[in-house]
């Protein structure tokens, strides 16, 4: 039995769905993906691909083909001469099935 067995789609509750999808990423690069049916969101560091898939499908009422995630390390910033670190972030690039789309600018 693999670990995936435990994180089934059923276990993403309504509350968790809203926590998972934090904000759309609106940048030049992200909008470029829009032409290929890809949408980008910021998600919690703890989010997993199946979770994200389930959440997006439930919230936006679309069909997701695949989810790619990446971890972006926080920048190191100096504050009064002390080095500090911004939080790491996780982005999820979601590829939708053909014929589906999400208007990221309108919000949930």
């Amino acid at each position: 039995m693999s670990w995936k067995h435990y994180i089934g789609e059923k276990r993403v509750t309504k509350e968790r769905q809203y926590e998972l999808i934090r904000t759309p990423v609106i940048t030049e690069k992200a909008t470029l993906g829009g032409e290929h049916g890809q949408v980008t969101f910021k998600v919690p560091m703890s989010a997993t691909k199946p979770e994200i898939k389930a959440a997006v499908e439930a919230l936006f009422n679309v069909k997701v083909k695949a989810v790619n995630t990446l971890r972006q390390k926080g920048k190191i910033k100096l504050f009064r001469g002390r080095a500090g670190r911004r939080n790491d972030t996780k982005k999820a690039i979601i590829c939708l099935e053909e014929g589906h789309s999400i208007d990221v600018t309108t919000g949930v």
Partner: peptide
């Protein structure tokens, strides 16, 4: 923010 000047897509 997130776009270079002049590269913002019309929709946005």
């Amino acid at each position: 923010p997130g776009f270079r000047p002049g590269k913002v897509p019309p929709s946005i």
